[in-house]
Design a binder for these strands. Structure first.
Length: 256
DNA sequence: GTGAATGTTCATTC
DNA sequence: GGAATGAACATTCA
């Protein structure tokens, strides 16, 4: 699931539970821990509390009082949820136990996971591999980032721009009427400006919903239908590959 | 059984 | 060197 809007939603979950003292960390599956042991994580967090969380690309940074931080990456199937009570789910991998309930990091496929940073430098090292956040990229910078590569490959490359995943990229390109395999270098200044503006439109609309909304008026609402039609012109959507990922586009609105 | 799934990384090939 | 492709990671579902 998680792309920028989803992670923004998880940020909200974490933000609701800052200041509460962490009683302990239950590591149910250490496979999701990256570069830190369960013991060390528990030692570092016990008795501390989260402070205002932030997001960079698809990373959620949960700073702790004292300067350390927990970094969450949700891969394709991760999520963070709050539970006051009730049974844990088999895919709950790490649980932060607070006084009134638990923050549960659930992740079926375990493709990414949780990292620990002892200080701001360590956070910066981890985030150093991620390009500017999609919501922070200005128009000029955006134009510089589009190279001769296929535009979808660029949009979804986290080292170039942080936060855009497969669904968002298709949604943005559809909204901008640009074919996913167009080369950045072949696009006019006007095209690039338009694409940048559509990116912001889609992100701004998706963030409050905490996901890429599967509305019928969006491409995302139709992409799973076997022969879905374009919400704009009714043409049957095309399914193919671009940037190494399954891709959906409208052959009429987004000519090659 | 097969292929694909909203992610990332590494190796390989052009 | 840049860009594209395929496999790998782990698990579920159509």
């Amino acid at each position: 699931m998680p792309e920028l809007p989803d992670v923004e939603g998880f940020r909200g979950v974490l933000a609701d539970h800052t200041r509460a003292e962490i009683r302990r960390v239950d590591v149910l599956d250490a496979q999701v821990l990256r570069g830190v042991s369960g013991r060390r994580l528990d030692d570092a967090l016990r008795g501390h509390h989260f402070t205002a969380p932030r997001r960079h690309g698809k990373f959620l940074v949960g700073p702790l009082d004292g300067g350390a931080a927990v970094l969450f990456h949700f891969g394709m199937t991760g999520e963070l949820r709050w539970a006051r009570d009730g049974d844990r789910h088999p895919h709950d991998r790490v649980v932060f136990v607070l006084p009134g309930g638990e923050l549960r990091f659930r992740d079926m496929r375990k493709l990414q996971g949780i990292r620990f940073a002892a200080d701001d430098d360590a956070v910066a090292r981890i985030l150093g591999g991620v390009g500017p956040d999609a919501m922070d990229v200005g128009r000029e910078r955006f134009a510089e980032l589009l190279t001769r590569r296929q535009v979808k490959a660029t949009l979804t490359d986290q080292s170039v721009i942080g936060g855009i995943g497969n669904l968002l990229a298709d949604e943005i390109l559809w909204r901008a009427r640009i074919h996913p395999r167009r080369k950045g270098a072949d696009m006019s200044t006007e095209d690039v400006r338009w694409l940048h503006a559509r990116m912001r439109t889609v992100l701004s609309a998706a963030i409050p919903t905490g996901r890429v909304p599967p509305r019928k008026s969006w491409l995302t609402g139709r992409r799973d239908e076997p022969a879905g039609s374009c919400p704009r012109c009714g043409t049957t959507l095309r399914h193919g590959r671009a940037g190494g990922r399954g891709t959906v586009w409208c052959p009429s609105c987004q000519p090659e």
